[in-house]
Design a binder for these strands. Structure first.
Length: 422
RNA sequence: GUGGCUGUGGCUCAAUGGUAGAGCGCCACACUGUGGAUGUGGACGUUGCGGGUUCGAGCCCCGUCAGCCACCCCA
């Protein structure tokens, strides 16, 4: 029978895949909560107008799953969370205690061609600090990213968080005599710098409307790795990061600009230092966003990290965890029809004792049952054959060590806990 | 949306236009009450789909679908 194809760009989460996602979620939760952030979530569908002209024109027009609901309203599967967050904050800006520290982990959808590190349905960690304008708030957010990388075993030699500030960049462009109307094009130009050859990039720059002098100034700006010292915000940012212990992950990079239109200040992205993968996370300061969705003006800062690229980076760094997919710590064998009843009772006793226990659901050869336990990584097999039933005992086999003991049923829970080292 | 590459057992891949194979995995047995190791044997295929060329197509041609990769954009 031909199987029906899954929807393009979606992923199936088999137990081992879900185990990884859960592992990720647990690290994200731990790091977020250790900084006092509260978990929240928004709806998976929003009205299209929430996104229109506030994130990026292409993101909304070309890369969102958009459809009319039965009432004729245009809605979108959420392509990002920040606007839902802004909307939720705007709705309760008078009553929510501020500053607001919120995090979330959930699914997002973008209608684009799937490729390496990019799928149409992906999971994303969002973390935001709203109501604070200080560079220290930006430093806290970036440092949470660093703390996460440290927690999952990705050290500063593998990951770097590259930081810039749009306010600084705009000042530099102004000083270079580049008129403000060219800035959007110039930002795009900066973004493309490492994708084009030097000659092609220069040609593209002239097309953007820069003259030779402005281009030369721009090149100086992009090579000046000390320019952050002229920015009070950047200086304060790096000082706070130092205190937060994340300095070794952070570096000023004048070529980082970020594509989303709503960023107003600090911007940053995490990359693997080998340059093998896409950006792992991206974020920055968005001081007008809450006002843009109808609230009072509230500054905010935050980032988003997708699960797909992170998985690739972990794989490259040989840092993927090995995870058990079966929750069972003990398999109760099903020797034959004469012992079935006793096996079921034993299994239920083990559960009552707090152990995750499963029962082989049909009588069968013991080798087969042990092999099953072995393949699932179940550490203990409780063997209950006619001999054991008659003696009122049972045999416990610890599969990783091959050790085997005999005990009474009353002792079983304790003995199993000893075997698995609890 | 544009371009490139690739579709063959469950997986990874072979097969000068001439009999569809291997390794891994799976199953059985050796070992009928002990998994992993070893050996022996076994099952599993309309070669993505549709058409064309040919005496003959997994291979060549056209179409189509899917996957991957790059561009675009971005997590």
């Amino acid at each position: 029978m031909a199987t029906i194809q899954p929807v393009k760009g979606t992923r199936d989460f088999y137990p081992e895949d879900l185990a990884f996602r859960r592992w990720l979620y647990e690290h994200i939760r731990t790091v977020s909560e250790s900084h006092g952030y509260q978990e929240f979530d928004g709806p998976f569908i929003e009205r299209l107008e929430l996104y229109a002209a506030k994130s990026s024109e292409e993101l909304v027009k070309e890369q969102s799953f958009v459809f009319a609901d039965r009432g004729g309203d245009m809605v979108a599967l959420r392509p990002e969370l920040t606007l839902s967050l802004a909307r939720m904050v705007a709705q309760r800006s008078k009553s929510l205690p501020q500053p607001i520290r919120w995090w979330s982990f959930g699914p997002f959808w973008r209608y684009e061609r799937p490729q390496k590190g990019r799928s149409r349905e992906f999971f994303q960690w969002n973390i935001d600090l709203v109501g604070v304008e200080s560079p220290q708030a930006d430093a806290e957010i970036a440092s949470i990213g660093a703390a996460f990388f440290r927690a999952v075993g990705l050290g500063p030699r593998i990951i770097r968080i590259l930081v810039n500030d749009r306010r600084l960049a705009e000042r530099q462009l102004e000083q270079a005599g580049i008129p403000a109307r060219l800035w959007p094009g110039v930002f795009k130009l900066i973004d493309r710098r490492d994708k084009l050859s030097a000659a092609a990039w220069s040609a593209y720059a002239l097309e953007t409307g820069l003259d030779a002098g402005q281009l030369s100034s721009l090149q100086h700006i992009l090579e000046d790795t000390e320019a952050w010292r002229t920015s009070p915000e950047m200086v304060a940012f790096f000082a706070a990061a130092e205190a937060l212990g994340s300095s070794e992950y952070l570096a000023y990079d004048p070529t980082v600009i970020r594509g989303l239109d709503y960023y107003t200040g600090t911007v940053f992205e995490a990359r693997d230092t080998a340059g093998e993968h896409r950006a792992i996370l991206g974020g920055g300061r968005y001081d007008n966003l809450v006002a843009d969705v109808g609230g009072e003006r509230l500054p905010g800062t935050g980032f988003a990290m997708g699960d797909v690229v992170l998985g690739l980076v972990l794989a490259s760094a040989a840092a993927l965890p090995t995870l058990r997919t079966s929750p069972s710590v003990v398999l109760v064998t099903n020797f034959d029809t004469t012992t079935q009843q006793a096996s079921l009772i034993l299994c239920q006793t083990l559960r009552a004792g707090g152990l995750q226990a499963e029962w082989y659901p049909e009588p069968g050869r013991i080798p087969r049952q042990l092999k099953y336990a072995d393949r699932l990584g179940i550490p203990v097999a409780a063997i209950l054959g006619p001999d054991e039933v008659q003696a009122g005992k049972l045999t416990l086999k610890h599969l990783p060590s091959g050790r085997q003991i005999t005990c009474t049923q009353a002792e079983a829970v304790l003995r199993i806990q000893e075997l698995i080292g609890h």
